[in-house]
Simulated scan of single mutants.
Amino acid sequence: MSGIVTAVSSNEKYSFTKPNRDSITLLTGLGVEGDVHAGTTVKHRSRMAQDPTRPNLRQVHLIHEELFTEVGEAGYEVGPGELGENVTTRGIDLLGLPTGTLLHLGPDAVLEVTGLRNPCLQINAFQDGLLREVVGRDADGGIVRKAGIMTVVREGGVVRPGDEIKAELPTGPHRPLKQV
């Protein structure tokens, strides 16, 4: 299973969107160098309010570019970095990966998939009604979160648009993604 990086984004301050960059540097055990969400403990404000000592399982956020096409069909215009992701991908089924999958980005970086992004109401502040497009229900009534996946950095490196992504599935029984 493979895909490509189509955009990389980071922001040194809290903001819903993240500006696109020519490259980002991933730091082992921390996240994106210079990004407000980098660190060993939680950096998302709502999670810090609950328990600032919890481990940061949301160091790097990835979204599949195909989501932008999907929400576009419902009348929303969304581009790379606008939903707060650090890495925008194409051609890889991020939401179908099991927990613990290793994603090799470019020549050096390795991310470990920790779970699904839990979309929040800020998405509606960005574009009214967009939240219902990125959170839906399956045929059995279960919640489906489509706003990307969260990862931690296992091996650092520079990541650029155009870099290949290779997925290395975990051994043993696969655990489906849950919100983190």
Rank of each mutant, 00 (worst) to 15 (best):
M1Y: 09
M1C: 08
M1F: 07
S2V: 11
G3D: 01
I4S: 07
T6M: 06
T6Y: 07
T6A: 06
K13R: 14
S15C: 13
F16N: 13
T17I: 10
T17E: 12
K18W: 01
P19D: 04
N20P: 08
R21C: 09
R21K: 13
D22G: 12
D22R: 09
D22Q: 11
S23P: 05
S23R: 12
T25R: 13
L26Y: 00
G29C: 05
G29W: 02
L30V: 11
G31L: 09
E33T: 04
E33D: 14
H37Y: 12
H37V: 08
G39T: 07
G39M: 08
V42D: 00
V42W: 00
K43R: 15
K43C: 10
R45E: 15
S46A: 15
S46K: 15
S46T: 14
A49N: 15
A49D: 13
A49L: 14
P52W: 09
P52N: 11
R54W: 05
P55M: 10
N56A: 04
L57A: 08
V60F: 01
I63G: 03
E65Y: 07
E66P: 02
L67F: 03
F68Q: 03
T69Y: 12
V71S: 07
V71P: 04
E73S: 09
A74C: 10
E77P: 04
E77L: 13
V78Y: 03
G79I: 04
E85I: 00
E85S: 04
V87P: 00
T88K: 03
T88H: 04
T89E: 00
T89A: 01
R90W: 13
R90A: 13
L94D: 04
L95S: 06
L95P: 07
L97E: 01
P98L: 05
P98Y: 07
T99P: 09
T99K: 15
G106L: 00
D108S: 15
L111T: 06
L111W: 04
V113R: 01
V113F: 05
V113P: 00
G115A: 06
G115E: 03
L116F: 02
R117F: 03
R117I: 09
N118C: 12
L121E: 15
I123V: 13
I123T: 04
N124V: 03
N124Y: 04
F126M: 08
Q127P: 05
G129T: 07
G129D: 08
L130W: 00
L130T: 02
R132V: 11
R132K: 13
R132L: 11
V135K: 10
G136W: 07
D138E: 05
A139R: 09
G141Y: 04
I143P: 11
V144M: 10
A147G: 07
G148I: 00
G148M: 01
M150E: 11
V153T: 09
R154K: 15
R154E: 10
G156P: 06
V159C: 05
R160W: 01
R160G: 02
R160Y: 02
P161M: 02
P161T: 06
D163T: 08
D163R: 01
K166G: 11
A167N: 08
L169Y: 06
P170V: 07
T171Y: 12
G172Q: 03
H174K: 12
L177D: 01
K178M: 10
Q179A: 15
Q179C: 14
Q179D: 14
V180N: 12
V180F: 15
